[in-house]
Amino acid sequence: MTRPAGRPRRPISRVNRPVRPDRTGAARRVASRAAGLWIVPVALLAWEAATRVAAAVYFPPPSLIVVHLHELWFSGPAGRAFLTEDAVDHLLPSLARVVVAWVAACVAAVALGVLLGRSRLLGDVTEPLIHFFRSVPPPLLIPIFMTMTGVGTPLQITAIVFGVVWPVLLNSLDGARHVDRRYLDTCQAFGLSRTIRLTRVILPAAAPKIFAGLRLSIGLALIMMIISEYIGSTEGVGYRMLVAQGQVDIPSMWTAIVILGLLGLLFNAAFLHVERRALAWHSGAHDTP
C-alpha cells in the first residue's frame, strides 16, 4: 500500500529536464499545451448557449459579460492605459492595498518565524498562541478592526495583514525549526558566519515550508481584501460589486466576479512561477497539492 521510500515521485522534474535548443520543438510543445486547453473554449461556448437558451436573469451570457467588462473597466483613454474612471477608482486601490499588505505581512512573518524557529525557547513559548490566532477565522475580526481604524484603507491593510500573517508565521517557524542537524554542524565545522548560515542553509532548508505558507496566504489575502471592502469601504472592487448588487445591475456584478477571478488566477500563476524557480532544487516541490 505504501510507496517504497526510495522511489522518486516523478523521474525528472520539469525544470531539470534538459531544454532542447531547436525552435520547432519549443513551438510544438507550446502548441500541444495550447491544444490541451480545448476544454476552455468548449466550456465557454456551452455556457453561452445555456445562458441564451435559459435566458436566466442572474446568468448573463459570457459574451455580454466581456462587452460589459470592456465598457465598465477597460474603455478609458489610452493615456491612462485604457482604464476607465471606475477602474482607477476601484481596481487600482484594491490592487495596491492587497499587494502592499501581502508583501509587508509576508516579509514580517517570514523574518519573525525564522527567528522564533531558531530559538527553541521562543518557539515553544509562542507556538500555541500562533496556532490559536491562526485558527480564528480572520473575517470575524473585521468588525473589531473597524472600531479601531474606521472605514477605509487602514482597515483593508489591517484585515489583509492579519489574515496573511499567521499561516506564514507558523510555516516559517516550523521550517526553520526542522533544519537538518548535520547541515548546521557542517556550518560550524567550516566556521561559517551567522549571515551565511542563515542565507545559505537555514532559509533554503525552510523554503519549502515557507512557500507552502505563502501559497496558502494568497487566497486568504484576496478573501480578506474582498470581505473588508464589502463591510467597510467606499471604494474597491468588492465595494463596486456590492453597489452593482444593490442596483440589481447583474452584468456589472459579473464583471467584478471576473476581475476578482482573474486576480486570483494571476496571483496564483505568478506565485507558482516564482516558487518553481526558487524551489527547482527541491524534488518534492512540484508535487505538493
Binding site: 442572474y58 478573501i223 448588487q245 447583474i250 467584478a256 466576479i257 486570483g264 496564483n268
Partner: peptide, 13 residues
C-alpha cells in the same frame, strides 16, 4: 483560484 467570497453577491441573488 476564484476567491469564493467573490461569488457572495451572486449567491445572495
Amino acid at each position: 483560484p476564484i476567491p469564493s467570497v467573490a461569488l457572495l453577491p451572486l449567491a445572495m441573488f
